[in-house]
Amino acid sequence: MKSFNHTIKDQLGIHARPAGLLVKEANKFASGITITKGEKKVDAKKIFAVMSLAAKHGDIVTLCAEGDDEDDAIAALQMFMDGNL
């Protein structure tokens, strides 16, 4: 299992558009991928779940991948989060 923490830099937080992009990115991988904010942990491949986190600017979220392609998934997600959120 691989994971990393990320502080949301986007002023609006994980709003609809980046949530969509994140779900799209997560679905490229076979590994199970979760995103956690505080005590709430959700499936990063489901858009309603990701939006329900209501992650805001300054919040710290943890992305976690588990499966055969977890290394690739984490690398790609790290790049995605740095570039978009």
Binding site: D43, K46, I47, F48
Partner: peptide
């Protein structure tokens, strides 16, 4: 992009 998000919402597992 909102319409792409809408497509994903309809395809959302939950």
């Amino acid at each position: 992009m909102i319409f792409e998000v809408h497509q994903m919402m309809l395809d959302d597992g939950d």
